[in-house]
Structures are given as C-alpha cells and as structure tokens.
C-alpha cells in the first residue's frame, strides 16, 4: 500500500530525513515513532507530496508521489497534528466543506454525514459551532473529516496529543474500528502505549533514520531485557556502586533513579530488601524502554 525507498530531505545543511525505507501492507496499522525533530512530520508531508524529496521514491496506493500527488491524496485521509477545523462552520458544515475539496457532490457528502457524525459520536452536536467543542470532540471530528471521501488509507500525526485519558480511549476505539474495517493506517506518535496498543508494526525514527523496525512485542523482546526495576531513594549511590552490577544485566542511572534491566527481577528485589532505605518499582519492560535505549535520554527540544 505504501513503499518508500531511499527517501531524503535536506533543509540547508540539515538532513531531516536520511535514506528512509518503509513498507506498509494493505490493512496494516503502522506506527512511526521518534523524539521531537526525528523527522516524523516531515516524512508524512513527503508521503503526501506536499514537499519534494531531495532523493528517493514514494509509491502510495500504486501512485508515484510527488509526481501524481493529487491523485494519491484522493485515496488518503489526513488527521494533522494541529487542529485545523474551520471555526466559521458548524460540525456538519465542516464535513460538507471538506468533502467538496475532494470533488464530491453535495448529495454524496450529505448521504455520508450521518454515518460520519455517528462514528465521531457527534450526532447530537451536528449543528454545534467548533469553539463549543471539547478537545476530544474536535479530534474526533477531525478524524471523521479525514474519512469524508472514504479513503483506503489514513495518515494520523500524533492523533491523541493533548487529550485526556477518556478522550484518548475514544480515539483509539475509533481507530480500531477503522483497522477492523480494513483501512490502512500510518500513525506518528510519541506515546509508546499508543503505538503498542494500535500498531501491528512500527519503525523508530531518530535523526531522520529508522533505528529499529518490527512488531512492538518483537522489538521489546529483541532489544531489551524482560523486566525493569526502577530504584530510587537514600543510599542509591552506594547501592549502585556495590550491588547493582552483580544483580542487573544492565544498569543505567538517570538523575536520581537507577534503571536496572534484568531477566530475574526477584533476585534484584531480594537484594533491594537488604537496603531498607531504597524504594523501587518493578514492571515488565515496554516499548518506552526500547525507545529510550535506542534514541537516548537527552531532550530534543
């Protein structure tokens, strides 16, 4: 459904995307993860043909981009990072106006509106004005708007950033329904739980390159030890010096916390019980651990 090879994009001397290869199957939900500035949004803009690559090729639904980007965009729905609903229109009018940009007739759009409102859970808000909607409602409407022309494929750029947990879960449910309906989804996010929940496969991007790719489970299993014990409290420094290396497969100190990666958490916890002033949190390792291992812990702002 989407094939990208050798994609490069430079701004001045900065290479934002450096030789990206991606392959997304029909019906798959593919996650693009990466810290801020990793090139996620630039990649999406390249895929849509909004900007021209310096090198590489993109084929979207069998259509070459950017050469035939207009045709390709007919088959794609986009949920942008920043809400750009039309504040001058009501909920329903937003859908109608957007359908027109796809060349749909008023009748064709109107026939689709009830279904879209229903999908977004906004049937009772059809005539509400945009400023009256909550953040979650706006996101759901943006998602419904992206579906107005019934695209085969959806691009979502950080779809749940800034939403509360209830609103995020609603968006996820919506996305699951779309996945079950056979839509292909490409999703950027920096929420690891979101990627772990939704993506069949994902690529971790850093400095414009794919640093790891695969199913979330596989990535966790192949890149990281199965369990993590986070240790903090008084006496951490001496414990780190004297004990940590003997019980952890890999230990990493970040500020006032020691991350102890292990395949035998009980042994670590046993050792910790000898040092009563220390506190700890034991958990299975997750995608975030993989992400931080591969992209580092430095801030990227």
């Amino acid at each position: 459904m989407l094939t990208v090879s050798g994609l490069c994009k430079r701004y001045g001397n900065t290479e934002v995307v450096r030789g990206l290869d991606l392959h997304v199957q029909r019906g798959e939900c593919f996650g693009l993860l990466g810290p801020n500035g990793a090139g996620k949004t630039t990649t999406l803009r390249l895929l849509l043909g909004l900007i021209e690559p310096d090198a590489g090729s993109i084929e979207l639904a069998g259509i070459a981009v950017p050469a035939r980007a207009r045709e390709a965009r007919m088959k794609i729905g986009v949920v942008p990072q920043m809400d750009n609903l039309d504040p001058d229109f009501s909920v329903r009018e937003n859908l109608i106006a957007y359908g027109r940009y796809f060349g749909m007739s008023r009748a064709a759009i109107s026939a689709r509106v009830p279904e879209l409102l229903d999908f977004a859970g906004l049937a009772s808000k059809a005539d509400a004005q945009i400023p009256q909607l909550s953040g979650g409602m706006k996101r759901r409407l943006t998602l419904a708007r992206a579906l107005v022309h019934d695209p085969d494929m959806l691009f979502l750029d950080e779809p749940t950033t800034g939403l509360d947990p209830q609103a995020r879960h609603l968006i996820w449910q919506g996305l699951r329904r779309l996945i079950n309906a056979g839509k292909t989804i490409v999703l950027t996010t920096h929420f690891m739980d979101e990627a772990e929940r939704l993506a069949d496969r994902l690529a971790i991007l850093d400095h414009g390159r794919v640093v790891a790719e695969g199913a979330p489970r596989t990535l966790i299993e192949s890149h990281i030890e199965p369990a993590v014990v986070e240790v903090y409290g008084k006496g951490l420094a001496s414990w780190t010096r004297e004990v940590a290396d003997s019980v952890c497969l890999r230990a990493e100190t970040v500020g006032e916390t020691l991350f102890c990666y292990t395949d035998n958490a009980q042994r670590v916890i046993g050792a910790l019980h000898q040092a009563s002033a220390l506190r700890y949190l034991h958990r299975p390792s997750n995608l975030e651990d993989v992400f931080l291992k591969l992209t580092g812990r430095d801030l990227r702002d």
Binding site: L50, E71, P80, D88, Y101, G103
Partner: peptide, 14 residues
C-alpha cells in the same frame, strides 16, 4: 491563524 489552507492542502488541492 485558522490553518484552513493546511487542511485544504491535505485534500487533493494545490
């Protein structure tokens, strides 16, 4: 301000 053009450009519009 409203980013209306951005939304339009995601559709098959130039």
């Amino acid at each position: 301000v409203q980013r209306t053009w951005d939304a339009i450009l995601n559709a098959p519009m130039t």
